[in-house]
Design a protein around this nucleic acid. Sequence first.
DNA 1: CGATTCTTTGAAAACAGTCAATCTGTGTGG
DNA 2: CCACACAGATTGACTGTTTTCAAAGAATCG
Lengths: 191, 191
Amino acid sequence: MESFLHYLTAKGTFTDTELERIAAVTVVKKLKKRQYLLRQGEVCRFKAFVVSGSLRLYRTSDDAVEHVMRFATENWWLNDLESFRSGRPAKGAIDALEDSTLLLWSKENWELLKREIPAFNALQASLISRSLDAQGDRLYSTISYSAEERYHEFLKSFPDFYHRVPLHMIASYLGVSRETLSRIRKHATVQ
Amino acid sequence: MESFLHYLTAKGTFTDTELERIAAVTVVKKLKKRQYLLRQGEVCRFKAFVVSGSLRLYRTSDDAVEHVMRFATENWWLNDLESFRSGRPAKGAIDALEDSTLLLWSKENWELLKREIPAFNALQASLISRSLDAQGDRLYSTISYSAEERYHEFLKSFPDFYHRVPLHMIASYLGVSRETLSRIRKHATVQ
DNA sequence: CGATTCTTTGAAAACAGTCAATCTGTGTGG
DNA sequence: CCACACAGATTGACTGTTTTCAAAGAATCG
């Protein structure tokens, strides 16, 4: 909770009353490694903020292969945006890669905070825009770069994931098989 | 302009005064095929709405290959979002695929409309969220499906693009070479 | 320790990219 | 109106990359 309040004050201007108001409606949730926060097909009724640990959002295709859409660690937001917004069943599932501590807000409280606290509303708008930019860049790199280049870009962007996330999930995130990523990595270290 | 007012009233609730206010600050722009609306490196200072015609937003990689990020036709919005928001040089360029008619708003007027007209603000927020969802789905399909599956999905989503957009640009959008797409298409029609 | 998860490796097959040539249709200028 | 140029699409032959399948080797955890 501490760290979240630091995060908020770093990202926007909030009065103490506003911070209390926000704190009053946040719920702390702890997840063990491999526990689900959201299952595919459920409606996503929350916004989550990662205090510690790491999680992934992934989709499962018809042939039962899991495809990682995003990772999230300390100070990242995470939910199934489309399901949260529309109330439709989530296309993705969310589970924990490590034991994690999260802060959750119900959709009702989230809307309330957006309405009542201008800086909160501005923050979330800016988060959405930045997600869109980031996802645009990722899309560009998947249609433009080779698997090897994407892997190195990934490591540059998220250096600590190398240790915290299993290789086969990074492969899945990059859209290549784990065998291919294993070989790419071998190449890189030999040089 | 007519069609845009129809679009607006279909998407939200606007009073006549609001519609006039919006109309008062929109600029009509016509582009010939192959003309640029935005060049890579320029700052994108406008939002555009496509009344007729079609355009593409693309990035050029170091090896001088063009990669189509998106297409836009009638009733689509288009700009370089990141540059528009941040004021940084655009990573993408925009040009016309056909002779096109657009409506433009300067950043100042756009912000003004968002501030003054709640329904306008709501509309643009919803557009951003939907873009994010759509781009998420596209990302999923690029990391999950084969080129052939993606091509058919593309045709299902945008049937008229088949006639209006050159094949090599669809290939670029899908992240495959034009030769590969040519062969995929041949396969499909033979069956 | 035993079980599970994760990573690596090899070999074959499928797939996609490159290069070069050709073919097609469109539109422009003479 | 024709000829020519040009943009776009296709094809073949070849190369290179990635997947798949199967097996085995680490690492981690209870």
